[in-house]
Design a binder for these strands. Structure first.
Length: 454
RNA sequence: GGCGACGUGGCCAAGUGGUUUAAGGCGGAGGUCUGCAAAACCUCUAUUCGGCGGUUCGAAUCCGCCCGUCGCCUCCA
């Protein structure tokens, strides 16, 4: 039985999908810049969720949107002095590059707000017809006070929130708490025709419209970062439930924690590694995923290069254990217990740190089993299966070339071999030092000498 | 002011009433291997869970107070 923490009820609940296919919506990114590791965290968490659900036999239909019309995009386009479509196209490409690099599987559908404009407008019309929204001067607003349980996700009270509200109240609203569904066009901004005149959708409505279109009016899981709870998800709930009458809009609301840094010094030293593509140039996707999955998804993982480095070393343990070869014998390593532990941990609100502990323990058993000469092939296969659920590739990170060609290295290794054979240790060590200086590691195992870059 | 999260070994991080005198990873120490190393593997590495009280036969786990860190309150994964 899979149990997941529902932000809406603030408890772990048994996961029971509405239909044969799990309907999952994950808030994607606003495409005005490269993805950073915070986006990676969210992508990875929900990638693991979908992988695990499939591992447990569910069919999953996952939708992750692109917000491709938004103030930040318009600002960016103005700054760079290019059409806004160029910005969104560029960063959608960048997003997929990052996701692919992190071994995050593509969602079933990646809709864009601009491509679902008829659905967005249709949904707004429904809300107006139902009395939940009103138009004024070419804009449309959602009537928050019309929804009795508004604030149920964030636990906020409208009036208390308004007290703390900063900034000016947009003119045209009946109530300061109301939010825009449709924004009347302003000069030099993208616009679409609508029954209320040219304009563009507000931020929240697109997700409701796209979820309705691509999944249906009631879904199983809605995910995103903790920072989206208010106002974004609160408003999505208000719109969706007011329009469809289907309550709750999503059975389970899942929110991943946000990255934490150790302070100003830290983020400075991180430099551009905060950007996913830069991080991928420095670390393997496996290391980045392990660094993230070693914390529970609802906590706030510490962003620290050292920790990703540690994860890189940890991954090696798994990678090497999986490569252990063994004879096929009657006596084989029993790995079922470890798989059971893995499943138990994952069933409990995706407890990946605990699931990983089972995998690491199994790896140790594999190594010990190899030394004892028992058959570990089933166990290594099991590690492959389980790590796949977590999205690990188990591919060694690309080794950095350091100027020397393979032939040159081979020649030096040969020199050293000769020196060693003649017990000229000083000469042999000198060659080894030379190679190490060039980033080549030498290893004498079982009478054989091998080398590797990095 | 409101809503909420968190404080576990040198670092990261599970565990939320007894099977835990606290998983797992990194680091460290010892060992195997080696000419010596490196790498790899094996073993060990918190009688203790921010502080002080309380509830209980029993608490890291529940309650109260205190100290500290952090997120959100209409830009945000």
């Amino acid at each position: 039985m899979i149990r997941l923490y529902n932000s809406l009820t603030r408890t772990k609940e048994e996961f029971v999908p509405l239909g044969d296919e799990v309907k999952m919506y994950v808030c994607g990114v606003t495409v005005y810049d490269d993805s950073h590791l915070g986006h990676a965290l969210s992508s990875i968490v929900f990638d693991v969720l979908s992988r695990y659900l499939e591992y447990r036999g569910y069919k999953v239909r996952k939708v992750q949107n692109f917000t491709d019309v938004d103030d930040k995009i318009i600002n960016r386009a103005n700054e760079d002095d290019v059409p806004w479509e160029e910005i969104t196209e560029k960063y959608i490409t960048s997003f997929f590059e990052s996701s692919d690099g992190l071994n995050v599987r593509r969602a079933t559908v990646h809709p864009k707000a601009t491509e679902d404009m008829p659905e967005i407008i249709g949904l707004i019309e429904r809300l107006i017809d139902g009395g939940s929204a009103y138009s004024n001067n070419g804009s449309v607003y959602f009537r928050v006070r019309n929804k009795a349980d508004y604030g149920k996700l964030s636990g906020q009270d409208i009036d208390q929130m308004l007290e703390a509200t900063r900034g000016d109240m947009e003119s045209g609203k009946e109530d300061p708490a109301d939010f825009a569904l449709w924004k009347a066009v302003k000069p030099a901004e993208p616009k679409w025709d609508s029954p209320w005149g040219p304009g563009r959708p507000g931020w929240h409505i697109e997700c409701s419209a796209m979820a309705f279109k691509h999944l249906g009016e009631q879904i199983d899981v809605h995910g995103g970062g903790l920072d989206l709870i208010f106002p974004h998800h609160e408003n999505e709930i208000a719109q969706s439930e007011s329009a469809s009458g289907a309550v709750p809009f999503s059975k389970i609301w899942m929110h991943n924690g946000l990255l934490r840094t150790t302070g100003a010094t830290m983020s400075k030293s991180l430099g551009n590694a905060f950007n996913v593509n830069s991080a991928l140039a420095e670390f393997s996707s496996d290391a980045i995923r392990l660094w993230i999955l070693q914390s529970h998804y609802r906590t706030n993982p510490l962003l620290d290069k050292k920790l990703i480095d540690d994860a890189e070393r940890s991954m090696r343990r798994i990678r090497l254990a999986v490569e252990v070869e063994s004879p096929e014998l009657d006596e084989s390593l029993d790995f079922k217990d470890f798989e059971r532990r893995f499943v138990e941990a994952m069933d409990d609100d995706l407890n990946t740190p605990k699931a990983l502990a089972a995998i690491f323990d199994l790896c140790r058993k594999i190594n010990a089993g190899r030394d004892e000469g028992i058959d570990v092939s089933g166990a290594t296969e099991s590690v492959r299966d389980l790590t796949k659920v977590l999205g690990f590739t188990l591919v060694a990170p690309p080794e950095t070339a350091e100027g020397l060609t393979d032939a040159e290295i081979d020649a030096l290794v040969e020199q050293r071999k000769l020196a060693r054979a003649e017990k000229r240790w000083g000469d042999a060590d000198a060659v080894r030092d030379q190679l190490e200086a060039a980033g080549i590691l030498i290893s004498d195992t079982g009478g054989e000498t091998s080398w590797s870059r990095g």
